[in-house]
Design a binder for these strands. Sequence first.
DNA 1: CGCTTGACTTAGACAGTGTCCATTGTAGGA
DNA 2: TCCTACAATGGACACTGTCTAAGTCAAGCG
Lengths: 136, 136
Amino acid sequence: MSDLLERLRGRGWRMTAQRRVVAEVLDGDHMHLTADEVHARAVDKLPEISRATVYNTLGEMVSLGEVIEVSTDHRAKRYDPNAHRPHQHLVCARCGAIRDVHPAGNLLGDLPDTERFGFTISDVEVTYRGICPNCA
Amino acid sequence: MSDLLERLRGRGWRMTAQRRVVAEVLDGDHMHLTADEVHARAVDKLPEISRATVYNTLGEMVSLGEVIEVSTDHRAKRYDPNAHRPHQHLVCARCGAIRDVHPAGNLLGDLPDTERFGFTISDVEVTYRGICPNCA
DNA sequence: CGCTTGACTTAGACAGTGTCCATTGTAGGA
DNA sequence: TCCTACAATGGACACTGTCTAAGTCAAGCG
Ligand SMILES: [Mn+2]
Ligand SMILES: [Mn+2]
Ligand SMILES: [Zn+2]
Ligand SMILES: [Zn+2]
């Protein structure tokens, strides 16, 4: 089942009921949940799990590169278990729906050397904004 | 001096000391300030200006398209008076320094039709991340 | 000019999101 | 089974942003 859980076990994580539940929630069908949304779903499976533990666990997963933090609006960060296939996000400006997208081309190459100001650039983050078919 | 102020006057804004000061701060040398940083600088010029007014004024300037909201980290929004020349941002992952950059190429064109899922896309937001010369 | 009025400002309460810490619990190895 | 280092807990706290009720004032008008 949980590939995410497998990878975490392989990294020497102490396996607790709480971490199992957080991993299960992330691997479920709902993508791009906020920490509090993850917590709400986790509570359904393990009523005594605390908010702090969910925040800690998500933060650790991000540090390990197993989960990605996404912030498409200026509100809560969202947690994305799709960390092993590089992708970007397409966001509906009206309802907030989020889709994974895979742009063609070399995004990093679009930035000329004269525009790099001596930075060593390691990452490009792109958010496409528009109106989804439902909202149109 | 303040081009920003001129444009706002032209839009029928009631001209108050508070709005003048916020516009002056934005047009100063420091770019990409947070609302509370704008407030701190505004207080130096007009001690009684309130936090709420700074938030309100910045929000109105954004609505009018005279200022852009930027969120490069997952913390406070930053306010960018450079609203009339489209650009993107380059951010130092260590110290948070922000530079304006002007990518070549058609950013929107990088997203194939098959990756648009029926959305009407109106905007692309790009953040380049790396390490600045100072931090390297 | 001085009045009038509706737009603007203010202080502070409140809400949403995230962090911290002292205490308690427990996974997993000896 | 026991130990102990690591993890979980709950609640206080910090940061960012929003809201409201009451007071203030810019600007148009006589
Ligand atoms: Mn994603
Ligand atoms: Mn800028
Ligand atoms: Zn929509
Ligand atoms: Zn730096």
